[in-house]
Computed example of a mutant assay.
Amino acid sequence: MKLSQSALLAFAAAVLAAPSPTTLEQPAKRAAGCSSAVTLDASTNIWKKYTLHPNSFYRKEVEDAVKQLSDSSLADAAAKVADVGSFLWLDTIENIGKLEPALEDVPCENILGLVIYDLPGRDCAAKASNGELKVGEISKYKTQYIDKIVSILKAHPNTAFALVIEPDSLPNLVTNSDLTTCKNSASGYRDGVAYALKNLNLPNVIMYMDAGHGGWLGWDANLKPGAQELAKAYTSAGKPKQLRGISTNVAGWNAWDLSPGEFSTKSDAKYNSCQNEKTYITKFGDALKTAGMPNHAIVDTGRNGVTGLRAEWGDWCNVNGAGFGVRPTADTGSDLADAFVWVKPGGESDGTSDSSATRYDSFCGKSDAYKPSPEAGTWNQAYFEMLLKNAVPSF
């Protein structure tokens, strides 16, 4: 059983706000990269060797937030957030300009996380996170976006990179194929993801294709078609050896191993046995293996420290009462889960609560959404402080 249209729209809109275009002071330079070229073995869990790098852009946002705290007693705890590894979002062609500066302080033992996120017609079932490229601009995506990133990564062979490839794209084609916007975006998504996978398949890169979360492709009827959709992209890309598997719960709120699950008492719970992300990556991983694709996973735990907050499983926007979750680690207790990581920069908004705004999405006005909230990607100081106070484990 697939979800109702409203629920599907909710899941597809698990909005992924990209970082705000903050101009940074240049960080103090440290010895960056390794003394020789890096080669990542995608048949192994590289997170047991590398630490997710605390990128300089999020660090600057957090350091600025410390100066603006409404409660000075939080200062010590807040400052520690800057030391947590997180992914840098390359969500526009312009923001590729953040990549070179972010490379200046990455030591050999660290890996720089990047989110590849600029498909034409991006987030076809959402409003708050729509991108810059229009449907049909696939050539621009390839030549002005992917090719530019590839060039930079090739120029830095001594640095290790971990990539999350196009959050929400292929999952939308599984559950929202009836929407005109998603129908129009489908060919560009498939072509674009395959192109990204093929060309970013570099020795110093490990890749994870985004697979939504357990409340999206975890429904019994979505597991097989979801795995097949991702596997087709993998095959179309020539089965790149640097693809390790999938990313899940990106910018999401699902618990890792909560049992019974947060929505296990809902009337339709019998149609979804993936009530937490641990079960999801196991069941979806089995489906991926059958479809012929690598099936290891990284799971975003950046904001899932508190559960039981959402009125519905598909509510995704600035969930009120949320807290920072488990810090990045390869100690997951699961052979399929390579690592818990922070993909979503905690403190950056998912979308505006201003109903008059062009990019307003009704999910940002729901009863379980934090208000007021600014445009997607914009810093929300009060929300950051809430995440800090509610962090599990605490800082």
Rank of each mutant, 00 (worst) to 15 (best):
A162Y: 02
D361T: 12
G347V: 03
L258Q: 08
E61I: 09
L173A: 09
P345T: 09
K98H: 14
L223W: 01
G346Q: 10
A330S: 15
R122T: 07
A337W: 09
I46M: 13
N45L: 13
K140N: 11
E348G: 04
L112K: 04
Y208G: 10
T329G: 06
R310C: 06
Q26F: 10
N318Q: 02
A330H: 13
R359H: 14
S86Q: 11
P260V: 01
A28H: 11
S36N: 11
S177K: 15
T265A: 14
E166A: 06
T92K: 09
P107F: 13
D64I: 08
W379P: 00
V341K: 10
L103Q: 02
N45C: 11
K2E: 01
Y195S: 00
V341Q: 10
K283G: 05
A221Y: 00
P374F: 02
F384A: 01
A237E: 03
I165S: 02
D338Y: 10
Q228F: 02
P19A: 12
S187D: 12
I96M: 08
G308D: 04
G325N: 06
K60M: 13
T248S: 15
E104M: 12
E100Y: 01
N158L: 05
M209D: 15
G192F: 00
A162Q: 06
E262C: 01
A291R: 04
I46L: 14
A78P: 04
T332R: 05
M386P: 02
A79E: 09
N304K: 01
S72A: 12
K154Q: 14
G314R: 01
I281R: 11
L112E: 03
E229R: 09
A79N: 07
V392N: 15
V193A: 01
S6D: 09
K98W: 13
F263Y: 12
W216H: 09
K198D: 02
D286Q: 06
N320W: 02
L133T: 00
A287Y: 00
D168Y: 04
A330I: 08
L163H: 01
G238F: 00
A382W: 01
A102N: 03
T143A: 13
V319Q: 01
A37M: 04
M1L: 11
T265C: 07
D83V: 03
R359L: 14
A78T: 04
G346Y: 08
D368S: 08
S267M: 06
G33Q: 05
D335N: 13
Y360V: 09
C364W: 06
K154L: 06
R359M: 14
D123I: 05
P157F: 00
R327T: 14
Q68S: 13
K266F: 11
T181M: 12
W216D: 03
E166F: 04
T181K: 15
T159G: 03
W342H: 15
L90T: 05
N130E: 13
S169A: 15
E132D: 10
I149W: 07
Y117N: 02
P21R: 10
V319S: 02
Y189T: 05
T159C: 08
D315E: 09
